[in-house]
């Protein structure tokens, strides 16, 4: 029983470290990447994973909070991709240019936003 508790605590610390690492890498990507779409990628994906694993680590350290934390994780999974999708779509519709090194533009290829360009 004690060994199970020790494993739980160390797994909690591990998830916390993973979460804070990804939360650190997200703003770094926002600083380093060239245009809006790449920055959106860095800002959304890394913060989603970072927040989820940090919350899960806290839930492992304090097992009483695990129910609430599952609800929080579901909420983040629901809202974060939707909002970043809305930002990226509106940026494309308002003709924010892609960076010069981009090789593919699927939206233009499939003529989805033909009138926007």
């Amino acid at each position: 029983m004690i060994i199970l508790n020790v494993i739980r605590v160390y797994a909690g610390y591990f998830f916390l470290i993973i979460g804070s690492l990804f939360l650190f890498l997200g703003p770094l990507g926002i600083l380093r990447f060239p245009d809006v779409y790449n920055r959106l990628q860095a800002g959304t994906k890394s913060t989603t994973l970072g927040a989820i694993s940090a919350l899960f680590g806290i839930g492992l350290l304090e097992p009483g909070w695990l129910g609430k934390i599952v609800i929080l994780i579901l909420f983040i999974l629901l809202t974060n991709p939707v909002s970043s999708h809305a930002i990226g779509r509106s940026a494309y519709r308002s003709k924010v240019p892609l960076c010069g090194k981009s090789v593919v533009d699927k939206c233009e290829e499939e003529h989805i936003y033909k009138e926007a360009k």
Partner: peptide, 10 residues
């Protein structure tokens, strides 16, 4: 333009 399907369902 119309908002996309993902935003509406979300």
């Amino acid at each position: 333009c119309e908002p996309s399907l993902i935003v509406k369902r979300g």
